[in-house]
Computed example of a mutant assay.
Amino acid sequence: MSPSPPNANFGPRIDDISYVDALESSIPIGNGPHIGDLLNIIFVKIIYFIKLIFHLFFQRKFILHRLIGLLYLLQYFFAFYLFFKNYDLFKSSFLIWSLPLTGFVQSLTAIYTFTFLSRTKRDAGYYSDRGTLSYPFIVENSFFASILLFQWLYYSNKFYPLFTSSIIIDNLFVFLPYIARQLWPKTSFRDSLYNSDKNKTEKNKKFFFIVTHITKCFYIWAKHYIGFFLNYIRFFNRVDTEDIYHIYLLLLFGAFATTISMFLHTLKFKGYLGPKLSFMIYMVSYLATFYSFIQIRNTFIMNIDLTIYVFIGLLLNFTRYQHAYQIFLMVLFNAHRDNMLPNDIKKYLFSS
């Protein structure tokens, strides 16, 4: 749900009258409001909401991208409701595959819709209050949507056997996604600060400087512990039903941070959300994933071997050895899972 083109001039207005003016004109001047006046205010709000929905999702321009975005939002909020209302129904529902798949398809429609956006990789446009998203950032988002789709399916008992029986797909997504990552453009957090004088207002420059660094730290954590660690424990099937429950809640937050975050930028671009509020909602969505990690904290201790292997990978993250390390783990973990390691070696390398 990427932003509309830079020349789109749609704000929160009803015809030629702003929403605020429309409301003020309907508020009675007398001492107390009458029922008719209150109904008039409610009516104006309903009309405004209908026009808002129409302008966001049903305009002819970019209609495919808009409709898929609406479909994603409807599925997301239904999934969130169903997760807490009836988890057993949630985990066996179509939402397990349709929600992340729709998010991935949405990222693809964005790629083919917003080809007119800037091609610069230095300024992604998301970490500012003035800039629009860059095209490389739009393309890059499809990578994260794809690995999120994999995890949703990987933690489903319905799809898990299909992946374990497919050696290539299993190993590609568990160990080698960031080798395939090189096929996508890469934007940099550091470079997003490069153009701060132009893409950030003076009053928000410090705010975006701080939150960009916080997001960068989270991204490194997420890459290794939401990504690799959760993949590793599922690879060895060292998770129980309670773990999977909390991990699916984490994936719901991850879906928000990956796909709905793009919609937040649209709302910011069109003036419905302020730049700080938009980014704070995004931050809350990804920081909420720590709730699930707190709930499964014992998993880190019970799988101390994998916790250490992931930590080593984190330390190697900014070196040229990170990909070689993942290939090494792929060979080692497959040998362990297939009982190909001698017991006197296995006991030193794995806790179970």
Rank of each mutant, 00 (worst) to 15 (best):
residue 10 F to T: 13
residue 108 L to P: 00
residue 206 K to S: 09
residue 200 K to R: 15
residue 213 H to L: 11
residue 4 S to C: 07
residue 272 Y to K: 02
residue 24 E to Y: 10
residue 2 S to N: 14
residue 14 I to K: 06
residue 232 Y to T: 10
residue 146 S to C: 11
residue 155 Y to F: 15
residue 280 M to A: 06
residue 298 N to V: 11
residue 297 R to A: 12
residue 190 R to S: 12
residue 12 P to I: 09
residue 204 N to T: 12
residue 331 V to C: 10
residue 203 K to V: 11
residue 20 V to W: 04
residue 59 Q to V: 12
residue 89 L to G: 10
residue 210 I to T: 04
residue 218 F to V: 06
residue 279 F to C: 07
residue 267 L to Q: 01
residue 192 S to W: 06
residue 350 F to E: 09
residue 185 P to E: 05
residue 161 P to Y: 07
residue 23 L to K: 05
residue 51 K to C: 06
residue 94 F to Y: 14
residue 345 I to P: 01
residue 309 Y to G: 09
residue 166 S to E: 08
residue 207 F to D: 02
residue 3 P to T: 13
residue 139 V to Y: 00
residue 187 T to W: 01
residue 323 H to A: 12
residue 180 A to E: 08
residue 20 V to E: 06
residue 210 I to E: 00
residue 117 L to Y: 04
residue 258 T to L: 02
residue 162 L to C: 07
residue 56 L to C: 03
residue 90 F to G: 04
residue 84 F to P: 02
residue 67 L to W: 01
residue 219 Y to R: 03
residue 255 A to W: 03
residue 135 Y to R: 08
residue 36 G to T: 14
residue 167 I to L: 13
residue 30 G to H: 00
residue 282 Y to C: 04
residue 269 F to H: 02
residue 277 L to D: 02
residue 340 M to T: 08
residue 25 S to I: 08
residue 81 Y to H: 10
residue 29 I to N: 09
residue 262 M to K: 04
residue 291 Y to W: 07
residue 78 F to S: 09
residue 225 Y to S: 06
residue 319 T to V: 06
residue 37 D to A: 15
residue 266 T to I: 00
residue 193 L to K: 12
residue 315 L to E: 00
residue 21 D to P: 02
residue 170 D to A: 12
residue 126 Y to R: 12
residue 168 I to L: 15
residue 307 T to I: 08
residue 205 K to G: 04
residue 42 I to L: 13
residue 230 L to V: 12
residue 17 I to A: 07
residue 45 K to N: 05
residue 170 D to Q: 15
residue 44 V to H: 03
residue 153 L to M: 14
residue 236 F to A: 05
residue 123 D to S: 14
residue 155 Y to A: 05
residue 35 I to F: 13
residue 30 G to Y: 00
residue 121 K to V: 11
residue 160 Y to F: 11
residue 23 L to W: 03
residue 290 F to L: 10
residue 30 G to N: 09
residue 200 K to F: 01
residue 87 Y to D: 05
residue 94 F to C: 09
residue 215 T to E: 07
residue 47 I to C: 01
residue 270 K to W: 06
residue 88 D to R: 07
residue 37 D to E: 15
residue 30 G to Q: 09
residue 142 S to F: 02
residue 2 S to I: 14
residue 71 L to G: 13
residue 49 F to T: 04
residue 11 G to I: 11
residue 219 Y to E: 08
residue 153 L to Q: 06
residue 214 I to G: 01
residue 137 F to M: 06
residue 147 I to D: 00
residue 219 Y to H: 07
residue 111 I to S: 01
residue 305 D to V: 08
residue 231 N to W: 04
residue 279 F to G: 03
